[in-house]
Amino acid sequence: MSLVEYATTDGVATLTLNNAPANCYSRDMMTELDAAILKARFDPDVHVIVVRGAGEKFFCAGADIAMLQGADPYFKYNFCLHANETLLRLEHTPKLVIAAIDGHCVGGGLEVAMACDIRIARQGRGKCGLPEVKLGVLPGTGGTQRLVRVVGKSKAIELMAVGEVFPFERAAELGLVDHLWEAESHADFHAKVLEWAGQFVPPKAASRAVGLIKRACQTGAEIAIADGLALERELQQRLFEGEDAREGLAAYNEKREPEFTGR
Rank of each mutant, 00 (worst) to 15 (best):
A71Y: 10
T16A: 02
H82T: 04
M67W: 10
L88A: 11
R246L: 08
Y252L: 08
L239V: 02
L130Q: 03
V151P: 05
C217K: 15
L147D: 07
S185L: 03
A161I: 07
A183C: 06
R215Y: 14
A216T: 05
E254I: 00
V151K: 06
E158P: 02
K76L: 13
N18H: 07
L90H: 03
G70K: 11
L231K: 10
G163P: 01
A22F: 10
T9W: 04
L176S: 12
F42K: 13
L174G: 03
L15E: 00
M114Y: 07
I225F: 15
P21Y: 04
A191G: 09
G140M: 13
R146A: 12
E259L: 08
L33W: 03
A245S: 10
A226E: 15
G220Q: 12
V51P: 00
F200A: 02
M1A: 11
K255S: 06
L96F: 06
L17D: 05
D10Y: 01
K255Y: 04
V150P: 06
D45L: 05
E234S: 15
P94G: 00
L135A: 08
G55K: 04
R149M: 11
G129A: 01
E247K: 02
G248V: 00
A63M: 12
I225L: 15
Q69H: 13
G248A: 00
A226L: 12
E222T: 14
V210H: 01
N23P: 04
V133G: 03
T31Y: 09
L81F: 13
S154R: 10
M30P: 03
I49E: 00
C128K: 04
C128R: 11
G163Q: 11
A20C: 05
R233V: 12
T141D: 14
A183G: 07
V148H: 13
F240R: 14
P258D: 02
R119S: 05
I65L: 14
T8C: 08
G228I: 14
L249Y: 01
K127I: 07
H92S: 11
R149V: 01
E232K: 15
M114V: 07
K204W: 01
A99C: 03
H186C: 04
G53N: 06
A245I: 02
V148L: 13
E257F: 05
V193S: 01
L212S: 06
E222K: 15
T16F: 01
E247F: 00
D45Q: 14
Q145T: 15
